[in-house]
Design a protein around this nucleic acid. Structure first.
Length: 561
RNA sequence: UGCCUGAUGGUGUAACUGGCAACACGUCUGACUCUGAAUCAGAAGAGUCUAGGUUCGACCCCUAGUCAGGCAACCA
């Protein structure tokens, strides 16, 4: 362990199990986990929790973690998802052991074990229609009834099973079932299905197979093949555990044995997490794709401007337990800001510009101001920001008739321009519609940043940009996608009813300082006083596009509302 | 009416397996500030689902309840 002995750190329940196994030298002291996504969709932040857990445990205990694709259902799976999943895991900063593994690599072994079970009288081919089988399964409170094919001769089942593989039957005509207990109080033990016929091309095995193993049969055996010691999954598989163990009992030799451990999945307030709902948002065009910056997918968060560090830190802070939980999105935003604050360069961008004219500043004159890139970083360099007679400031930083605690610009009020001069508002001009179009100020020429005259206390500091030398940028202001804390939690109301109509606001002509011209897609900045922003992949030379990742904390507007 | 699991401030996670409930986010003060950010200092907020029991002592052990989630796909 990386923690010094005197520094007591509390363990979560999985770490407790692992440390106990280590003490008992279980599985010869090996620690081997796995992350087993089904390649049928994009990974979301809930998966990120699981990824951080599994790979993180492997790192902490000097073990290994496999990436294994649970690709046993070719009807839903695709190579596109395989690629995106690998990309997301690598982006999060984790390395899987050796190559990615696939359950489909074990199809032959799984098949052989299935034949073995048939020969031992522990599995049989059933040829009843689906409806009948599910009917016979019974209900949780009442035992099921046995299939008439349950005790057919071994040789018959074996022959049928081989013909299933050979393609002699249509989809649904035959299935292979484990012979366990039709009266078990656990529905999963009532002769669960091991194999079904699927005449369907598989993205990796092509047309080599027309029968595919079910999850319950494939998963534990795959764990066994790979030498997994701790098979961590979410709570809904808890009831599958007896079956996981039953299948293992058939092949384990008594020495090594993997163990399934379940934990509570992540729920986030103001967010939907189910693949089905996320897919619906994409298909109905409510968002622009799986990587829409409003999506809780890893690709969406990445495009939004989240950093892997912030996500890993988030996963660390939420902990792991077995009770249902709902994490406040605010915590996610906290870990995001925490990291972005440390790493981003500060720039000035005026989102909603209004012109300021400094009447006592010479026409045509330009000065170069220097602003520190990141005051949080002692080694940070500075960059140049042009200043001139005509500037833009944020429209909301001026009020014709400001309230007492308005530390910004208003008639007669003084304000500091970040990194430049202190100015005072003398007058302003409105258009025929009553909108302020120009603000006239005088500037204290002795107050240039760094000079003696700059030492005065001034209540407010504004960001600004040169009217002449600023560049245009498109800025996409994202807000949470849902207005309700638990959009999927209302039985009577569809989750889409809670969609925030203002989750995206596009500003086509924000005014940015020229230094930002160099921004490349993915680059992150703090727009001074406005929030953290990230250059979008739509950004091109000459047409900058920025996504608002998250606003700055804002106690002022909070206390004013 | 069955089976599995869970229950600790607003939220999440702890409490060395029995020694008078801690940490983080959030909230509220105040300081500082050329970002109403960050930073710093401080405060409020639970007596651990309920009722019994064991014990000098219970969040922790026992009993009985209550409430919540999950389980009846040829999905994973």
């Amino acid at each position: 362990m990386e923690f010094p002995e005197n520094e007591k750190r509390s363990l979560n329940f999985i770490e407790t199990i692992i440390e106990e196994d280590l003490r008992n030298n279980k599985n010869e002291g090996r620690i081997h986990l796995r992350f087993p996504p089904e390649p049928n969709g994009y990974l979301h932040i809930g998966h990120a929790k699981s990824i951080c857990l599994n790979f993180g445990l492997a790192e902490d205990y000097n073990g290994l973690c496999n990436l294994r694709f649970d690709d046993t259902n070719p009807e839903k799976e695709d190579i596109e998802y395989v690629d995106s999943i690998k990309e997301d895991i690598e982006w999060l900063g984790f390395k899987w052991d050796k190559k990615p593994y696939y359950a489909s690599d074990y199809f032959e072994q799984l098949y052989q074990w299935a034949e073995m079970l048939i020969e031992q009288g522990k599995a049989y081919v059933d040829e009843q229609p689906q409806e009948l089988i599910s009917q016979q399964r019974g209900v949780p409170t009442r035992p099921g009834t046995e299939s008439p094919y349950r005790n057919r001769p071994v040789a018959e089942s074996l022959d049928l099973f081989r013909r299933m593989r050979a393609g002699d039957f249509k989809n649904g005509q035959m299935i292979l079932r484990a012979k366990i207990d039709m009266s078990s109080p656990n529905m999963h033990m009532r002769d669960p299905i091991m194999y079904r016929i699927l005449h369907q091309e598989h993205h990796r095995t092509g047309n080599a197979w027309c029968i595919y193993p079910m999850y319950d049969y494939a998963h534990g055996q795959s764990d066994y093949i790979e030498g997994i010691t701790h098979s961590v999954c979410t709570l809904e598989f808890e009831i599958h555990r007896p079956l996981y163990d039953w299948f293992l009992d058939q092949i384990a030799d008594g020495g090594y044995r993997p163990r399934q451990i379940e934990f509570a999945r992540l729920n986030l307030s103001y967010t939907v997490m189910s693949k089905r709902k996320l897919l619906e948002l994409v298909q109905k065009g409510i968002v622009v794709g799986w990587d829409d910056p409003r999506m809780p997918t890893i690709s969406g968060l990445r495009r939004r401007g989240y950093t892997p560090e912030s996500l890993r830190n988030f996963a660390e802070r939420i902990g792991v337990a077995k009770r249902d939980n709902v994490i406040d999105v605010g915590l996610l935003e906290f870990t995001l800001r925490e990291h972005l604050n440390k790493i981003t360069d500060r720039v000035m961008v005026v989102l909603n510009p209004v012109k300021v004219i400094i009447t006592n500043y010479p026409e045509g004159k330009t000065e170069k101001m220097w602003l520190v890139n990141n005051p949080e970083n002692a080694e940070s360099e500075s960059h140049e920001v042009p200043f001139g007679r005509e500037l833009y400031i944020e429209r909301e930083d001026f009020m014709e008739d400001p309230p007492k605690k308005f530390f910004r610009l208003g008639p007669g009020q003084e304000v500091r321009l970040k990194g430049a001069y202190i100015i005072k508002c003398d007058d302003y001009k409105k258009d025929e519609n009553g909108n302020v179009v120009e603000i006239y100020c005088t500037c204290d020429l002795n107050s240039r940043s760094g000079a003696e005259g700059a030492q005065r206390k001034v209540k407010g500091t504004l960001h600004w940009v040169s009217a002449e030398q600023s560049i245009d940028a498109e800025v996409r202001l994202y807000d949470r996608l849902f207005l309700d804390e638990d959009p999927a939690g209302h039985k009577e109301t569809d989750f889409k009813e809670f969609i925030n109509p203002d989750s995206l606001q596009v500003i086509s002509q924000a005014k940015a300082e020229p230094w930002l011209q160099r921004a490349q897609p993915g680059d992150k900045f703090q727009f001074q006083r406005m929030g953290y922003f990230c250059a979008d992949k739509d950004s091109k030379p000459g047409h900058l596009v920025f996504n608002r990742t998250v606003t700055l904390r804002d106690n002022w507007s909070k206390s004013n509302s």
